[in-house]
């Protein structure tokens, strides 16, 4: 079974389209296909399309979806139902593979040693496994430009920290549960920090502001502390 399962209201100015109820690459691909489909239809009065792991929110302007006898949400749901009468193709749109350099461990990944120990792996193998697979950006959320990546080796999963850090440095590569992601700026955070990338992931004044986009493929490449410093030097300051 695949495709749109249900549409439910999300307050009076948004609806949520459900494609599943778990973190799954196929479900997530359907979400992004649906987002592309709706973006191409360019329905009037749509303010935001917000893809997540297994759902897509459609935020609308109620004034533009006003109709007799139904609420704007009902009116919008009817239009969306028509839009999905034929399910959109879920062919992966993005063949782009983004390489993200990471300096693992040390000051850049203070939780790496403990994480490797919990996984019962030598540190080198933990790093090799993290950098071996190709990830897919499932969604951006939590903070501007924060990518949630799908594809983590199950052996590497880590419990969230009992007490979150008040400040995680920008660029930190982290694992929380079965998810891995990158903090785009200094933020509070409860994930385990295993390394850090010198790349700037988000710059509001760049076009586009986000380095990674939902649906893209990502691979990590281990770099030394010296390479990290050199790459950081070469980054435009955000």
């Amino acid at each position: 079974m695949s495709g749109l399962r249900a549409i439910e209201p999300l307050g009076d100015s948004a609806v949520l389209l459900h494609f599943g109820d778990r973190i799954d690459a196929t479900v997530n691909a359907e979400v992004h296909a649906a987002a592309r489909h709706l973006a191409a239809l360019a329905l009037p009065g749509i303010i935001e399309l917000v893809p997540a792991y297994a759902s897509l929110a459609v935020v609308f302007d109620p004034a533009q979806w006003q109709a007799d006898g139904v609420t704007p949400a009902q009116h919008c749901v009817a239009a969306l139902t028509r839009a999905f009468a034929t399910p959109p193709a879920t062919t992966a749109a993005s063949a782009v593979l983004i390489e993200v350099p990471v300096c693992y461990g040390g000051e850049h990944g203070p939780d790496l040693a403990a994480a490797a120990q919990r996984s019962g792996l030598p540190v080198e193998e933990f790093i090799a496994r993290h950098a071996a697979v190709e990830y897919r950006v499932a969604m951006l959320g939590f903070a501007a430009g924060f990518p949630y990546l799908l594809g983590l080796d199950a052996r590497l999963q880590q419990p969230r920290r009992a007490s979150p850090r008040t400040r995680v440095p920008a660029g930190s590569v982290a694992i929380g549960g079965l998810q891995t992601g990158i903090y785009p700026r200094a933020l509070p955070g409860g994930w385990n920090l295993i390394g850090r990338t010198p790349l700037t992931l988000f710059d509001a004044h760049a076009s586009p502001p986000n380095r990674l986009a939902a649906g893209q493929r990502v691979r990590f490449r281990a770099v030394t502390a010296a390479e990290f410093a050199a790459l950081q030097e070469a980054q435009p300051s955000a």
């Binding site: 999300l10 100015s13 949520l16 778990r22 973190i23 997540a52 792991y53 297994a54 759902s55 929110a57």
Partner: peptide
């Protein structure tokens, strides 16, 4: 729950 979009007023 799997993370999903939220809105002002949620």
């Amino acid at each position: 729950l799997v993370s999903a979009a939220v809105t002002a007023g949620t």
